[in-house]
Nucleic acid binder design. Structure first.
Lengths: 107, 107
DNA sequence: TGCTTACGTAAGGCGCAACTTAAATACGAA
DNA sequence: TTCGTATTTAAGTTGCGCCTTACGTAAGCA
């Protein structure tokens, strides 16, 4: 999950995700959308997104077609929703507060 | 918004946010929660979070009390929800597709 | 005034992440 | 096979982020 968060922390990668959100695109089309960076750089960004499971890759002859993995994006959203304010978090906070109190008494 | 995303991309800062989510804490308490890093490092993380408007700071004599800015966190969540699948995005995508088609015809 | 506590800030080290160019790989076509 | 296209991968540079140590600042107290 950390990998996914670091992936979307980069504006270039967010733009790529937006490009392939609703339609499949070959790497060349994605790359040609950025005029200030080489194809190689875009390819490496795609590698990061692929590694974070945020995009799917499909081969078509010469080309590689990319598409956003909407399901994984949804997982990321629910994680963000629940990390801070979910039930698990409240339990964990209480446990850690107790641990800190204990440490403070014994330290 | 980019600042906020980069801020929560770091696991240490996410942990800090979780610590001050439901209760106000002085910087020293936050720092003492991390045993593998100095107070200075934690202070710098707090600076990043403050700069991203993800935490509020309140002074009490000697100390500085921190608390998560839940409202800004909610803004971040809605941004994440709408960035990829919102109406603005659909319009922007259509415009860019048209531009690419135009470029393809003229190039 | 001095001392202590609780912080932030400055300066520098170090690793990683993003980029470039150049080379390698994969595929289709001649 | 040879060539051209599409793309990744390798190698190297550079800048930025996280860290530490050292110093500065603000507040309370003797």
């Amino acid at each position: 999950m950390d990998v996914a968060l670091k992936a979307i922390a980069d504006p270039r990668r967010r733009e790529i995700l937006r490009l392939v959100w609703s339609k499949e695109l070959p790497a060349s089309d994605i790359a040609s959308h950025f005029h200030d960076v080489t194809r190689s750089a875009v390819s490496q960004h795609l590698g990061v997104l692929r590694n974070a499971n945020l995009v799917c890759e499909r081969r078509d002859a010469n080309r590689r077609l990319y598409r956003a993995n909407v399901e994984e994006m949804a997982n990321l959203r629910t994680f963000l929703d629940q990390y801070w304010s979910g039930r698990l978090n409240r339990l964990k906070s209480a446990a850690e507060a107790a641990q800190r109190d204990k440490d403070a008494r014994n330290g």
